[in-house]
Amino acid sequence: MKQQKTELASRQLRKVLTTVLYHCFVIAFSFVMIYPVLWMVMGSFKSTNEIMSSDLSLLPGSFNFDNYVTGWKGFAGFSFATFFKNSLFICTVSTIGAVFSSAVVAFGFARCQFRMKKFWFSAMLLSMMLPFQVLMIPQYIMFNHFGWIGSYLPLIVPQYFGQGFFIFLNIQFIKGIPRDLDEAAKMDGLSSYGIFARIIMPLIKSSLVTSAIFSFMWRWDDFLAALLYLNKPSSYPVSLALKLFSDPSTGSDWGAMFAMASLSILPIFVIFLTMQKYLVEGIAATGIKN
């Protein structure tokens, strides 16, 4: 009886110990992984001298916001207020288009019959895999013909024709909705458009949110398209502005650079923290159903 008790106790102790060890290890590992980001964000409160000394400690000697004040002034006569406004505009308008058009197209694929459906579905999968870099030269030539260079049109317009990844995501969700619902609605006299707008759209809210988050974050980070098509500092988004801001010719004020770099990831970070659930589900959904 006694022996049994001690055995039980030692087993429990071992369990607690492994749990503690496990958490210690994962926390240490996580810390190492995000250390570079922490170092940059904390560095934005340090003086440039402190940054250059490559002190490993995260806490600055004294917190000061001078870097933010200097950095915010931007370059070429435009402050970062302009760049943030531009980014916000591009991302919002693109995202609205991408989310809505992808939902519409997804409904077509998931619920409607039309000729060459298999072909267009394969085309959709292909468009998911085909990277922008392969298309950038001919698209540039095309948009140049349209006279769109220097405007936001090349960045925004293609978003309004459905994005493969979001179409795919929405199809998965729509397929999960019982067809009986459609049938019942049809009996009640709803057209396909009505079914889409009143039955399907409210039920795929979570995949719409997931699409919106991804779209916004990708557009926010996008650098190559902005680099290709925008030629005036007044129209630069944050990503491109940051690149020029950090060019050696503009000087090497690391403090100010770190401050603006930290600010530039802030919106992404906030979205990530608040919407984490949707992101994780979205990523998981694409990987599993393949």
């Binding site: 992984m33 995000i34 570079p36 980001v37 170092w39 940059m40 974050m217 980070d221 650098f223 990503s239 491109l240 940051l242 690149k243 950090s246 650079m257 770190f258 770099a261 930290s262 530039s264 990831i265 992404i268 970070f269 990530f272």
Partner: peptide
């Protein structure tokens, strides 16, 4: 988190 911000210009500067 690194995946989210890793391709940004900010991290390139870092």
């Amino acid at each position: 988190l690194p995946s989210i911000i890793g391709s940004s210009v900010a991290v390139a500067i870092l």
